[in-house]
């Protein structure tokens, strides 16, 4: 059949819109995974046993199964218990929860690595345990793991392609839409790959800047 990229420009606006949705879903899921990661880490380390044990099981289940399977569970499972979420929201929740578990692992290690003296000093100054955690220990821990969390966020961008399978009209699904009209899969998947590549480069650049600023702030 041969290749013919001349059909591409006509669909560039569709692809471009898809890229914007990919960025939106990545940013939303990244925020959820960041906040969720901190919350999960604190639960895993400090919650009472009755909460901690089932939580560990949940973490274990999420780390041991594929994201795609989890997306199916969330998308179809929520419908079954009567919560009919738009695909976009289900996608953000699925991606966000999945990466929150990975971020939580990083943050837990970092919390344990913060010098005990920090907690003791905060307690001596009259802060409660919760206050000491929130204002002294966790911020230091989070600062230490920003670079590896950033790497997780870059992985999240690439995994956001999976939400096309539950029908979110992001970059991958937009490419498929164009393919459905033109029967030119090779051309449009190459174009989609290029878009991902550029977004990926931009994210890496932002991450490097953030890392430099953290280095400088020490």
């Amino acid at each position: 059949m041969g290749l013919d990229f001349s059909v591409v420009p006509k669909y560039l606006d569709v692809i471009f819109l898809g890229a914007l949705w990919t960025i939106a879903i990545t940013v939303a899921a990244a925020l959820l995974s960041f906040v969720g990661g901190i919350l999960f880490a604190v639960i895993a380390l400090y919650a009472p046993r009755a909460v901690r044990i089932p939580f560990r099981a949940f973490e274990w289940l999420f780390m041991g199964t594929p994201l795609l399977l989890q997306l199916f569970l969330i998308y179809f499972g929520l419908v079954q218990i009567g919560i009919d979420l738009p695909a976009f929201v289900a996608g953000v929740i699925g991606l966000g929860l999945h990466f929150a578990v990975y971020n939580s692992e990083l943050i837990q290690t970092a919390i344990l690595a913060v010098d005990r003296g920090q907690m003791e000093a905060a307690r001596t100054l009259g802060l409660s345990r919760t206050q000491a955690l929130r204002k002294v220990v966790v911020p230091q821990a989070v600062r230490d793991v920003i670079p590896p969390i950033g790497n997780n966020m870059i992985a999240l961008l690439k995994d956001s392609a999976l939400v096309s399978v539950i029908g979110v009209a992001e970059l991958t699904l937009s490419a498929q839409l164009a393919i459905g009209r033109t029967y030119r899969p090779f051309e449009f998947y190459v174009v989609a790959a290029l878009f991902y590549y550029v977004i990926n480069l931009a994210m890496e650049a932002v991450l490097r800047r953030v890392e430099r600023r953290i280095q400088a702030s020490r």
Partner: peptide, 22 residues
């Protein structure tokens, strides 16, 4: 750079659906 910079799903689709064209 290419294979780590783009989604595995896109690479898979490119090979499976786009492959016959080349």
């Amino acid at each position: 750079s290419f294979f780590r910079g783009t989604p595995a799903l896109i690479q898979l689709f490119l090979l499976y659906f786009g492959g016959p064209q080349v």
